[in-house]
């Protein structure tokens, strides 16, 4: 379920989500509404309030060791047809994997 669909987001609002890498394999994970971590960006918690975002990030940082994730940080997302889509090439690549071949096994 995509959480972004349930929210009334206007176009000029800054919407963010929190991502990290999983300690065991380094794979990309996203913080969900239930404060767990998911490999699917569709599960991410979309945050449209800057103060809330900072607060959640601090909490995620504090819990990183217990959650077995590394280096949580905020990134900007956009709502495209109800799907959270990261802004910027770097975060797009983190959701899709390398844009070039050879990694047919990914996910």
């Amino acid at each position: 379920m995509s959480n972004i669909q349930n929210q009334n987001i206007t176009s000029n609002m800054i919407v963010q989500a929190i991502t990290a890498n999983r300690l065991s394999d380094g794979y990309v994970v996203y913080l969900t509404e239930r404060n767990s971590w998911s490999e699917q960006i569709e599960d991410c918690q979309a945050i449209d309030d800057l103060a809330v975002a900072d607060d959640l990030l601090r909490r995620a940082e504090r819990r990183a060791a217990d959650d077995l994730v590394v280096g949580p940080y905020l990134f900007k997302i956009d709502n495209q047809g109800g799907q959270p889509v990261p802004l910027g090439r770097r975060e797009i690549l983190r959701t899709t994997g390398p844009s070039v071949g050879t990694d047919l096994d990914r996910r």
Partner: peptide, 8 residues
């Protein structure tokens, strides 16, 4: 051992 974008 590095931690890169998608994995170690």
């Amino acid at each position: 051992l590095y931690l890169q974008l998608h994995a170690y």
